[in-house]
Amino acid sequence: MNIMSETAAEKVLEKKMNEISYKMIGEAVSVYYGDKRALYDVGLKVRENTVTALIGPSGCGKSTFLRTLNRMNDTIEGCRVTGRIVLDGDDIYDPSIDVVELRARVGMVFQKPNPFPKSIYENVSYGPRIHGLARTKADMDAVVETSLQRAGLWNEVKDRLHESGTGLSGGQQQRLCIARAVAVSPEVILMDEPCSALDPIATAKIEELIHELRANFTIVIVTHSMQQAARVSQRTAMFHLGNLVEENDTDKMFTNPDDQRTQDYIMGRFG
């Protein structure tokens, strides 16, 4: 009975993944920093409950594209975005969209772990508190606990929730940042090279975590490591000089890419 229901649940998940539904769609997205153009008419569809990896050499525009997805580029002076990005049918650059609400739906984890210089508990409860997601203290405790559990950090920190978040190790800090993002219950989580500042063991833990998070969230991850892209993602998009070169199933991308440039990059001929 128990086994039956588990397989049933897996089947539902399988089915969910097999039928393609798109969470975010970018059409002809171009980004300018002042006079300099950083992105040329990128069209990319992000599938729901899928990990999409963005790869490419440094300065190719992959981080820039990632940051357009929750309008983090708005905070950079002189940055201009053209084209259309749609989240569940709504254009996120439409004036009627509140950027605060958007960022609550599309969360972000940064390259360098950046916990606030506050306690672990306050770090996780920060988002729910500003969005008013928890009424009582007990609600908040529950949100903090589930978020930390989802980020695989609960067992390590449950006895010291009120110690400073900056006192954790680098890998723990990054998982704390993931917990912080998860606590707002976003639909999409953007990760900008989340493992580049971490050692291999911490990296392995985060990758495992990304696998688990996929069941509940749509994930877009920028990475420099081809192996990481191959390990964690189902879809991969390759950027070069501000253009989207190719977007494909990860398996196909790393065995038999359509584009010569992808082949060259993956073989390490440039980048």
């Binding site: 960022r103 609550a104 969360g107 972000m108 950046n114 606030f116 920060y126 988002g127 912080r180």
Partner: peptide, 15 residues
């Protein structure tokens, strides 16, 4: 104050 801290907060949807 590092930009990363501001980004972290803005990225969570804080004004």
């Amino acid at each position: 104050v590092p930009r990363a801290l501001r980004d972290g907060s803005l990225g969570l949807g804080a004004t």
